[in-house]
Design a protein around this nucleic acid. Structure first.
Length: 439
RNA sequence: CGGAGUGUGGCUCAGUCUGGUAGAGCACCGCGUUCGGGACGCGGGGGUCGCAGGUUCGAAUCCUGCCACUCCGACCA
């Protein structure tokens, strides 16, 4: 992409509304525009990151055997009356009335709807297990939206729902999602630690929150620091195998958010030198809640014995839009964002320090072509802005590489290559720089 | 939902106390000089001062009501 043709409205000054780093940087980097409290338009740069996060989550869901569908944002109130949650949910649920005075709601989650879909088609244990998911915008009318996309009212969420014949198979389904989450967050460059959690309005007894450690996190967390070094399951993981051992390895150490923290247990189970307190941002949560929805909503299947029984269910959420903010909280400096490569909006920024200079233009065009062909998604700053401004913008939007091409270096046959994460810069011939980027 | 604030050009803000016909910096447009870490000169465009009433000869400024947004707390993916 050529910056001169792109839409990247960067702000030199920090908008007064933004308090925390990710919100401030998303506004300054031209990723996001607030349209109302907790409701945002995703500008092109932000949208690219959102899509990359979404893609990683989708790939890991598919790999774990989940099946994608798409449910609507609006749901009938009657559906929620079946589970009893219509009245329980309170003012956080945005209620809407259509022209026929039918009561609708903007979905804050989809347990009821997926259960309704499941029960309409699935009758036999032979059709189990099933895990259905979608990636859709949700709305929760927070009393106090804040922190930009970390706590918006409208947010993009992946939510998956598992259906199994019995508790044992339900647990196995839970384990598959648990492991898929470890992989998905790690692929985004995040350390996400599963922690024992309250299940809140979703219900159930077995639940984990996946918490990204970041200095500016919303809640205090306490954990065994040995969890930070646990290995992430590799591409060769067999989701049809028994994952219980893997899940045990990730849940046998103490890790809890402050709302469920048990100081006495913490001290009993964790050696003093392994105790670690930090701050964290929740980016996903898994629930196993059995027949909480399937029983009242009569989602039953016939078992091998011919007897109908309510299916065992779990649900598994990932805050896609929230993750974009969480990644920035975990990875930025005073100059701007530092994107992990897998979620960077573009792979490399080429800075043309002197548009109009034939040699510089030619070197930039050559680089742009080569990097595009190599799938590196280059962003070429070919604008008339002065070099200082280009450097500042490049650091702000934080692409992993900066390829700096100007007349001074080119006269000596070299360009400059900068690694955003480390700040390391070196001068080298263009071909070598391109090779280094393409790795 | 309690408490505290803020709404003035695209952004950051001054002006409000003490009423007199709207400013600065940045950004934007034109010309020129510049050009490797947010340049400079000259010229220029852009604002029903959140909205609605009211007081007054006159309201960004005073009064009343409303709306929006932000922060602290409670709450929450």
């Amino acid at each position: 992409m050529r910056l001169s043709r792109y839409f990247l409205p960067v702000l030199r000054e920090t908008p007064a509304e933004a308090q925390i780093a990710s919100h401030r940087l998303m506004l300054r980097a031209g990723m996001l525009r607030q349209e109302a409290a907790g409701i945002y338009a995703w500008l092109p740069l932000g949208h690219r990151v959102l899509r990359k996060v979404e893609r990683i989550v989708r790939e890991e869901m598919d790999r774990a055997g989940a099946i994608e569908l798409l449910m609507p944002t609006l749901q009938l109130a009657d559906l929620w009356r079946e589970s009893g949650r219509y009245d329980d949910y309170g003012a956080e649920m945005l209620r809407i009335t259509d022209r026929h005075q039918r009561e609708l709601l903007f979905g804050p989650t989809n347990e009821e709807m997926i259960t309704e879909i499941f029960r309409a088609y699935i009758r036999s244990y032979r059709d189990l297990p099933k895990n259905l998911y979608h990636i859709q915008w949700k709305f929760r009318d927070e009393q106090r939206p804040r922190f930009g996309v970390l706590r918006g009212r409208e947010f993009l969420m992946k939510d998956a729902y598992s259906f199994d014949l019995d508790v044992g198979q339900g647990r196995a389904a839970y384990n598959r999602m648990f492991v898929a989450y470890l992989r998905a967050f790690a692929r985004m460059g995040l350390k996400a630690i599963p922690m024992k959690a309250e299940s809140g309005p979703i219900g159930g007894e077995l639940s984990h929150e996946f918490i990204v450690l970041a200095k500016t996190g919303e809640s205090a967390v306490f954990l065994d620091r040995r969890m930070l070094d646990l290995p992430i399951p590799g591409d060769d993981l067999d989701y049809d195998g028994d994952l219980a051992g893997l899940v045990d390895a990730w849940t046998c150490h103490y890790a809890a958010t402050d709302d469920v923290h048990d100081a006495a247990r913490y001290e009993r189970e964790t050696a003093a030198e392994d105790r670690m307190s930090a701050r964290g941002i929740e980016v996903g949560q898994t629930f196993f809640f059995g027949d909480k929805y399937s029983a009242p909503m009569k989602a039953t299947v016939s078992g091998p014995d011919g007897v109908d029984r309510a299916v065992q269910m779990g649900s598994y959420g990932v805050g896609i839009s929230r993750l974009v903010g969480a990644i920035i909280e975990a990875s930025h400096d005073d100059a701007g964002i530092i994107w992990p490569e897998p979620v960077a909006p573009f792979g490399v920024e080429i800075l043309n320090l002197r548009p109009g200079d034939a040699a510089v233009d030619a070197a930039c065009d050559e680089s742009y072509g080569a990097l595009t062909a190599a799938g590196k998604e280059p962003l070429l700053d070919d604008t008339g802005e002065r070099p200082g401004g280009k450097f500042a913008t490049a650091d702000l939007i934080g692409l992993p590489w900066q390829l700096i091409i100007g007349p001074r270096g080119l006269a000596e046959g070299s360009v400059e290559l900068k690694r955003r994460a480390t700040g390391e810069r070196r001068s080298l011939p263009l071909d070598d720089a391109l090779r280094a980027i393409c790795g």
